[in-house]
Design a protein around this nucleic acid. Sequence first.
DNA 1: TTCATATAAATGCAATTGCATCGACAAGGA
DNA 2: TCCTTGTCGATGCAATTGCATTTATATGAA
Lengths: 151, 151
Amino acid sequence: MTKKSPSPEAIAAWARLVRVSRQLVERTEDALKASGLPPLAWYDVLHELAEAGEGGLRPFELIDRILLAQYSVSRLLARLEVDGLIEKLPVSDDGRGQTVRITASGREMRRRIWAIYGASIADQIGDRLSAQDLKTLASLLGRLRDPPASE
Amino acid sequence: MTKKSPSPEAIAAWARLVRVSRQLVERTEDALKASGLPPLAWYDVLHELAEAGEGGLRPFELIDRILLAQYSVSRLLARLEVDGLIEKLPVSDDGRGQTVRITASGREMRRRIWAIYGASIADQIGDRLSAQDLKTLASLLGRLRDPPASE
DNA sequence: TTCATATAAATGCAATTGCATCGACAAGGA
DNA sequence: TCCTTGTCGATGCAATTGCATTTATATGAA
């Protein structure tokens, strides 16, 4: 096991990355709260389910797409169901599981959240960097994805 | 009140930013947990206090430096004190407040956390981008800081 | 079949967080 | 001095989270 020391540039980039992303998310959450809307996590689920279409998704598929623990997804879906934003259907070929589908209210809620969320992205990112810089940023970040499980 | 729509580039950059930073932090937290060490938030406090030197810091100064709510800092400090990593001193010219100072154990703990934290930064950031790219990344992120409180 | 193991999803319980408020002191005007 | 308002930090309580485990079903080997 080798202990490594990060370069000053790496430390600086890390600090900025963590701090900035926290601020961006926090501001967005605040904006949603101020509008009486649910948190971003709800949007993520509604978004994935909307993308998935009529077939819906199994909870475990949702877990891979949004980065949440199994129990978090389980509870999140329970709340979304109580609010009528999704529906759970038994799945024929696997008695353990279920399929989750977005409802009409769910689509409507997704739209309402996006009005705020999208504006927040535009304010905080879109208006501050050129399209070219945004591409550069996304590309650099892309190289940090999916670190191969270290040792 | 104007509702804006973000460009596709902005959406892509946002998604990457949020997702990547979450993954990086999560992996680091996991590494700390695996080593039986406390969470990153503890490091942040110990780091600030170490920087501050013998004079220590008032809790409200800490609040500005690390991005945490007042009650979070209050409780975090209480835990750090129980573990003997910091000490709270009454402050002479303000009977309401206190000064928080890092202890020797606190410095030791900071060192131990950094062994893991630093390695995680090197693994996840330092080894993946050149010094030049790291500077570019930090610079782009820098332009996203401190959004002027929107309307 | 039968049994051992694996996977899907939910949940009991303890720990943590967020919200609102409180208690204590400070600051400044009347 | 007295009173109002503001700031510092802590905390009661409800909601949420994390961990470990449970329940239910599937899968595959013997």
